[in-house]
C-alpha cells in the first residue's frame, strides 16, 4: 500500500534533493530540444553576414597565420623542424574546440537566466548543445588542417603520420569535450552568485594555452620543473598525441593519456554534481 502511494506521483518537488541524482532519464526525454538548440546556434551565427559559413574557415586560418608570424617569425620559437603553419594549425585545431566549449559553457547560467527563469527543462541541455554545435565547427577546422597537411605531406619529408593510431582521434575529441564541459560547467555554477571568477576565465584560458604545448613544443623545454608542470596539465598529452598521430613529432604516452582521462572523469563528476545543485536555486541569486 505504501509502495503504491509512492509510485502514484509523477514528480515531487522538495526542498532537499539527492546530490547524486543526475536526471539522466530527463535529459534523454529532452533530446529533441538538444538538437534544436544546436541548430539554432549554428543557423543564427552566420545570419546577416556576407561571407556566411565561410567565417568558420577564415577564423582558424587567420589565427594560425598570426601565430606563425609572431612565435615563429619574430620570437623564433622552435617548431621541431616542421613547417610553422602546419605545426600551429595542429595545435590550435583541438585547442580551439576546448576553448570555445569552455568559454561558452562557462556562462550557461548567466547568459540563459531569462529562459531558465521561465520554464524548466534539464539545464544540462544547454552546455551539451554547445559541445555539439562546436563539434560542427571543429569538423570544418579539421578539414582545413587536413588539406594543408596533405599539401605538406606531398612536399616535405619531415612529416611522419602514425597511421596505426588514427582510430584514437575521436577519443581525443571526446576528452577535449569532457574537459571543456567540466571546466565550463563548474565555472558557470560558481559564478551565479559571486561573479568574481568570470574576470579570470579569459586570462586563465590563455594561460592554459601557453601551458599546454599548443605553441611551445614540449621537446624544446629544457627545465625539468616546467616540463613536469606542463605535463600535469591534462590538455598537454591530448594535444601532443594529436601532433604525434598526424605529424610524427610530440609523443604518445598511455600513462599521461590515462591521467587526462581520469582527470576528465573526476572533473565531470564533480562539476555535474555542483551544476545540478546550483540549477535548483540559482534564479534567486543570479
Amino acid at each position: 500500500m505504501v509502495e503504491k502511494e509512492k509510485n502514484e506521483w509523477t514528480d515531487i518537488i522538495r526542498a532537499n534533493t539527492n546530490w547524486f541524482d543526475f536526471h539522466l532519464d530527463q535529459l534523454w526525454s529532452f533530446r529533441d530540444l538538444l538538437f534544436l538548440f544546436v541548430r539554432r546556434d549554428f543557423v543564427s551565427v552566420y545570419k546577416q553576414t556576407i561571407l556566411g559559413p565561410l567565417w568558420f574557415f577564415i577564423q582558424p586560418v587567420l589565427t594560425s597565420l598570426t601565430f606563425t608570424f609572431i612565435f615563429s617569425g619574430l620570437a623564433k620559437i622552435s617548431t621541431d623542424g616542421l613547417p610553422a603553419i602546419l605545426f600551429y594549425m595542429a595545435g590550435i585545431t583541438l585547442w580551439t574546440y576546448f576553448a570555445d566549449c569552455l568559454n561558452k559553457t562557462s556562462s550557461t547560467f548567466i547568459a540563459n537566466a531569462g529562459i531558465f527563469g521561465k520554464v524548466y527543462f534539464p539545464r544540462l541541455i544547454m552546455p551539451l548543445s554547445v559541445l555539439i554545435s562546436n563539434l560542427i565547427k571543429l569538423g570544418i577546422q579539421v578539414l582545413i588542417f587536413i588539406s594543408i597537411w596533405i599539401y605538406f605531406l606531398s612536399s616535405s619529408d619531415k612529416i611522419h603520420p602514425q597511421w596505426q593510431f588514427m582510430w584514437f582521434l575521436p577519443i581525443l575529441v571526446f576528452m577535449m569535450a569532457g574537459l571543456g564541459l567540466g571546466f565550463g560547467v563548474l565555472i558557470s555554477s560558481l559564478t551565479t552568485k559571486y561573479r568574481d571568477l568570470t574576470f579570470l576565465v579569459g586570462f586563465g584560458v590563455q594561460l592554459l594555452m601557453y601551458g599546454s604545448s599548443v605553441i611551445i613544443p614540449i621537446s624544446s623545454i629544457k627545465t625539468e620543473k616546467i616540463k613536469m608542470l606542463m605535463l600535469l596539465n591534462p590538455l598537454t598529452s591530448i594535444i601532443e598525441t594529436f601532433k604525434y598521430i598526424f605529424l610524427g613529432n610530440g609523443f604518445l604516452s598511455w600513462h599521461y593519456l590515462l591521467y587526462s582521462m581520469t582527470f576528465m572523469v573526476v572533473l565531470l563528476f564533480i562539476s555535474i554534481i555542483v551544476f545540478n545543485k546550483v540549477e535548483k536555486s540559482f534564479m534567486d541569486t543570479v
Binding site: I12, I13, R14, A15, T17, V119, S281, M283
Partner: peptide, 10 residues
C-alpha cells in the same frame, strides 16, 4: 524554476 526552502509539492 526555483526550489522551495522547506516543504514539498507532489
Amino acid at each position: 524554476v526555483t526550489q522551495p526552502a522547506t516543504g514539498s509539492i507532489k
